[in-house]
């Protein structure tokens, strides 16, 4: 088994970036994680070891125009990555409507060395194919960086799910066929629409960060065996689905255990748990 990557985690409560109690309270309210406790890095590493996960992608969120500030900044992500560059993969975030959005993103890639862009259409309230976003996508293309989009419904307050509907991403896939982008949370509840996009556009990915009802085992059974056809991922979408937990909202350990015992072929599991993420990140070529 190659390295295992969780492509979707939120480090808002990692202790090294939680010294400011007012900022911590803002994060809890803004993210809708009302009782989240702070986590020392040793605890994060213990969680990774228990789940047999080698690397985490850390996602920030810039809400400068919507909430007046960043929830987690690019500089904080860079600080965390510097603490353990072997384990952490840092993404950038930019509020697409701030006047200096392009400069912020260029600095995040070229100055801070961040590995991709996280955007949240539902919370930042934009349509993925809005031409005002195109300069950001062009920067990602030039830098060979992927985009991680929140997709589907969002449990964050003040978010609008229709901005995350998979249908809104097709025009983007059409206009930017070389831009690798991911519909996080498999676009739930519109998972069939997400599967359709993946089928048509090889540059579109999805992650497994969905646990909106039931236990991880039950929910993956419902979504990946009954809502979608039992074999769709294993046969047709195996190069475009990545393990992502959405930790700390969902349950990293039980989710990855549910996937490991799901019944996909060993080769599919290896792709989902790590190799697809390396291709998505531009660190490996597609098979």
């Amino acid at each position: 088994m190659s390295q295992v990557i969780d492509i979707h985690t939120h480090p808002a409560f990692f202790e090294p970036i939680c010294a400011d109690s007012a900022q911590l309270a803002f994060r809890r309210q803004t993210l809708g994680l009302y009782k989240a406790g702070t986590a020392p890095l040793q605890h994060i590493f213990n969680q990774m070891r228990a789940a047999q996960i080698d690397r985490l992608a850390l996602l920030p969120l810039d809400l400068t125009t919507r909430a007046g500030q960043e929830v987690v900044s690019n500089a904080e992500i860079q600080r965390l990555v510097a603490l353990d560059p072997e384990r952490f993969i840092g993404f950038a975030s930019v509020d697409p409507f701030r006047a200096d959005a392009c400069a912020v993103l260029e600095q995040a890639f070229n100055g801070l060395g961040l590995a991709g862009l996280k955007l949240h259409p539902a919370r930042q309230q934009f349509s993925p194919a809005d031409p005002r976003l195109f300069p950001l996508y062009e920067i990602c293309l030039r830098a060979n960086r992927p985009v991680m989009f929140h997709a589907g419904i969002s449990l964050q307050p003040e978010s609008l799910g229709h901005f995350g509907h998979p249908a809104g991403f097709e025009e983007l896939a059409l206009c930017f066929p070389k831009l690798r982008f991911c519909l996080a949370h498999f676009g739930w509840p519109w998972v069939t629409e997400t599967a359709a996009l993946l089928l048509k556009y090889p540059n579109v990915y999805a992650d497994t960060g969905l646990l909106y009802f039931d236990s991880a085992r039950e929910f993956y059974e419902q979504v990946f065996r009954r809502t979608l056809g039992e074999h769709w991922i294993d046969r047709s979408l195996r190069h475009q689905v990545m393990f992502g937990s959405n930790n700390p909202r969902f349950e990293q350990l039980r989710m990855i255990e549910a996937l490991r015992s799901f019944g996909w072929r060993a080769g599919t599991l290896e792709l989902v748990l790590g190799r697809n993420a390396l291709v998505f990140l531009g660190q490996e070529r597609a098979a």
Binding site: G32, K35, R249
Partner: peptide, 19 residues
């Protein structure tokens, strides 16, 4: 572990899953 527990759900007061 594999049992249909009622507590396997999102808890709105936490904003996260209770698994």
């Amino acid at each position: 572990e594999d049992h249909p527990y009622a507590h396997a759900r999102i808890l709105p007061s936490y904003g996260s899953t209770a698994g």
